[in-house]
Design a protein around this nucleic acid. Sequence first.
DNA 1: TGATTTCTGTTGAATTTTCAACAAAAGGGA
DNA 2: TCCCTTTTGTTGAAAATTCAACAGAAATCA
Lengths: 222, 222
Amino acid sequence: MKKFLNVLQRCPLFEGIEAEQLLRMLTCLGARVSHFDKKYTVMAEGSPARYIGIVLSGSVQVVQIDYYGNRSILTRMGASHVFAEAFACAEVQAMPVTVIADEPCDIMLIDCHHILHTCQNNCGFHQQLIFNLMKDLATKTVLFHQRIEITSKRTTREKLLAYLSVCAKGCGCATFSIPFDRQELADYLEVDRSGLSAEISKLRREGVLRCEKNRFTLLTDT
Amino acid sequence: MKKFLNVLQRCPLFEGIEAEQLLRMLTCLGARVSHFDKKYTVMAEGSPARYIGIVLSGSVQVVQIDYYGNRSILTRMGASHVFAEAFACAEVQAMPVTVIADEPCDIMLIDCHHILHTCQNNCGFHQQLIFNLMKDLATKTVLFHQRIEITSKRTTREKLLAYLSVCAKGCGCATFSIPFDRQELADYLEVDRSGLSAEISKLRREGVLRCEKNRFTLLTDT
DNA sequence: TGATTTCTGTTGAATTTTCAACAAAAGGGA
DNA sequence: TCCCTTTTGTTGAAAATTCAACAGAAATCA
């Protein structure tokens, strides 16, 4: 656990909590760490939503797969980020999404009951934890709105440009890498992969962007 | 304020708080009530995100309008529901959405700072409020996932059927009313209105559903 | 290094959506 | 009630997406 202390301290869930106290707290919360190889399922759709997940290393994707096998990528979480907290906190019966390892990763799982209900030891950190959880959920909601703003566009071109604009704004630079391959980007934007590839080529020919693998440069100021 | 006490007690934000204490609390929080006529703007996109809103009567729509004037309806909130809490809690600079009155409505506004930061009087209810806020945000996130599951479908037919299924499941009955007219439903599902009307007619002809104005009956068990 | 698998871009056909325009129906106000 | 506005369903044409198939490029693995 100690070797991940740095990551844990950057986790929004533990903001304002000292390193020393953090380790004690994790013991009290019954936190445990598991390793997952790439593409393995961290949490399966339909399974009980008891646990809050924290990415200690690597990254995960939160995906939704419908009846026909169509995948939507809802989000990707890297080190120090929290996932599945909404389902655990809302006490839904079953996970409505699947979480899979995007790379080999170490994941910390905490039973949400231990966070929401004060324990026998009456530790003093619960208030802070719940406050942080609230902040984290608010931030997630804002990011969700951003995604909806992107996917609500009607054409592949508009979705792509909206997404790339957000990326550029986020990194403060017109050149940036995205964490998706073509199929994943298509599943994030909710469009057809081949149509996406075609659109990227078209935008490149038109001089709107440059692109080499998953590294893009926006040549216009949208 | 007192005439809305019933509604306020049903508000998830005030769960577990006694009526008497609630009224004192609202004074301390500096809550104020405003009336809005139908179609008036309750919160404008771009304005500071300081306030949490609570619907006391009537209903509001949370919408996103893009550069070209295309509207997306993100959600509709009726009496006792909370809105804009995520933006206020996440302390974003500007509202990324617009909130408009769907019907004539009374809205309670509370400055989020008063909730997040304990006041001089050191009232004891902040912990409970923050806990409730956290629960509320978690629930909202789950509902967002549900909306994404609907809008991520690729065809108008699939989106419509997914939406109607959720409605039917929600009210536990195959016959139900939806809170949208055709244009609003199209803006919620993110499809073209005329295409939506055509699809409804088609589904009616096929015997999949019955529909009279905004009252639907699903004839299949999807 | 070589073989195998995965990823990517391209194409054309079929399907679907979007767009614009219009008329009938419904609703609101005087 | 009548008039005017809004909503709704329909249609056909244009545009865009999806789908399937394929070949070359890139990555993986032994």
